[in-house]
């Protein structure tokens, strides 16, 4: 498996603040439309699902199709009501799941 996903979000937020989260994961996102040098179709292999949870509750999810660019970049928002942990997951066609976690604190 490739490099660790890159995730950008603030370290802390005020209660009720809406923060922006940027994620990027390395993946070829082979669309299934391309042919190799011999003219054979290259089989599809993509990340087909992304999900983000905060303290076990769903925040945002995205079903991805082959029309998503290689190294999928996904940016979305989250409202912070409490300190806690974000869990991110990217599910590959072959069943592999890439996961990552990020913590956020409440501003004093």
């Amino acid at each position: 498996m490739a490099d660790k996903p890159r995730i950008k979000l603030p370290k802390e937020a005020a209660k009720g603040e809406v923060i922006q989260i940027k994620t990027l994961v390395s993946h070829v996102m082979e669309s299934g439309q391309r042919k190799d040098a011999q003219g054979k179709a290259i089989p599809r292999k993509i990340i087909n699902k992304f999900a983000c949870e905060f303290n076990g509750k769903p925040v945002f999810a995205c079903a991805l199709e082959p029309a998503i660019s290689a190294n999928p970049y996904i940016q979305f928002d989250a409202r912070i009501d409490e300190a806690g942990t974000f869990k991110f997951s990217w599910t590959d066609d072959d069943g592999t799941v890439i996961t990552a976690e990020e913590k956020i604190a409440l501003k004093a």
Binding site: V18, F60, C62, A67, I68, P72, A78, R79
Partner: peptide
């Protein structure tokens, strides 16, 4: 793509890159 938001999203806003 199909984006799924929840009240915890705070805003219904997202960016992706497409082919």
């Amino acid at each position: 793509a199909t984006l799924s938001f929840t009240p915890l999203s705070g805003k219904a806003e997202a960016s992706i890159r497409i082919r």
